[in-house]
Write a protein that binds this DNA or RNA. Structure first.
Lengths: 224, 224
DNA sequence: TTCATAATGTACGAAATGGTACGTTCAGTC
DNA sequence: GACTGAACGTACCATTTCGTACATTATGAA
């Protein structure tokens, strides 16, 4: 049987192997799908369709749906942490540094709603997948250090109240920033208050910053 | 064909109609299932199994899965709001009243993780279902009033800073209380910090209360 | 008692969905 | 060029899953 090298019919274009691209493509689509619909809500077939490749490839590179989900989760954390490097606080005086850190965190959450959704989804799953990921943990290990630095400098300058833990401060800042994205829909609806409106976002941001400052900075050192 | 009135075989026990019980039973199971697995993750068949009745009845009283979900969501809100009546703040002086309000809100969230999960899930769905529910909105309309009352009393007594909005204060308190339940798993894992440990829960609670007080109460009026 | 309607149980169907069997093509090595 | 393993496509399968057809019983009204 003379198997001709020419592809059948008019499609004379030959296939190109590009594993890196294919995997990246799958990850891109999968992340969006999972973040939008959750682990059980996302459909492998739909992910495959939106990909330039086929369903076969998903199972080729990622063994099953859950593995794909975990990979997407890890990718989300990676991407978000990557953006965080830019912040330079060392040259600022402690109060300004803290203020900038909170403002940045708040904004950073606003800019990454997909990531927030992935975290929400993972919490719905009781953190069952993040538990397995050493990568994610190692990624975030140093996230509190920056805050710790600022806090220490503020203490040394007698500007901040003593007795606070960096991790707990980070928790407070995260809570306020996270909730702003995660609970937009229900809060807006329940209180008939458009949380997304630019004016309200500005108010919330300044409340959050102000609230943290008032909590950390000694009252007599608060300006304005 | 002589259709005998006697039930077939040995099961001589006759059926009892009890629509109220059946509906309540379905709602109970459905709420737990949806809160645990989400809208797409929950299985109608599994809900049916855990019910004393059959799948047929689910579709008899609730037309489809989404309607059942919405009903469960409404029930969750109803139950939670019901527990809130107990709080009596009028006889307390403003600062104590605010402190108690925050403490209560924080605890209330901790006690109702299933409700929190339902809200998370609903936000994942972009609030698509809560939008349709006038019941839920009417239920929560007055939730800010209590806080508004306390704040006004604090203003009148010159204990609180002016210029704050009750809805925004409520937002801040909700954010801190909600996050404590919603993000337990990921936060604990990422920072290797057991957020659920009793000691840490105590710390967080007192941080949250203290933080809100420091934000609202005039610095010179803060005790302790 | 008769009758109408509400309430319930059983069995089943059609579509969706995760996953795979099987074959083909690509690309580097000898 | 021949060979080999990685990369890829198509078609398919088994199961799950939402929803329903159909039959039966309960219950209150006339």
């Amino acid at each position: 049987m003379t198997t001709t090298r020419v592809a059948a019919k008019g499609k004379e274009r030959s296939r190109k192997n590009d594993p890196v691209r294919v995997q990246a493509d799958i990850m891109r689509v999968a992340t969006r799908e999972f973040s939008e619909k959750g682990l059980s809500g996302a459909r492998i077939d739909e992910i495959a369709e939106k990909t330039k490749t086929s369903k076969r490839m998903i199972y080729y590179y990622f063994k099953d749906k859950e593995t794909l989900y975990l990979s997407a989760l890890e990718r989300s954390y990676q991407q978000v942490r990557q953006q965080e490097g830019e912040l330079e606080l060392d040259h600022l005086e402690p109060i300004e540094a803290l203020s900038k850190l909170v403002a940045f965190t708040f904004e950073h959450h606003v800019k990454n709603p997909d990531f927030i959704r992935m975290v929400m989804i993972e919490n719905i799953h009781h953190g069952r997948f993040i538990e397995q990921s050493d990568l994610i943990q190692s990624l975030n290990a140093g996230a509190v250090d920056e805050l710790q630095n600022v806090y220490q400098r503020g203490l040394a300058a007698s500007l901040f109240r003593p007795g606070l833990e960096a991790i707990e401060l980070h928790w407070l800042i995260s809570a306020l920033s996270f909730f702003n994205v995660s609970n937009r829909y229900t809060f807006s609806r329940i209180f008939n208050w458009d949380q997304n409106a630019a004016s309200n976002q500005e108010k919330l941001a300044s409340h959050v910053i102000d609230m943290v400052l008032r909590y950390v900075v000694k009252p007599e050192c608060m300006k304005e």
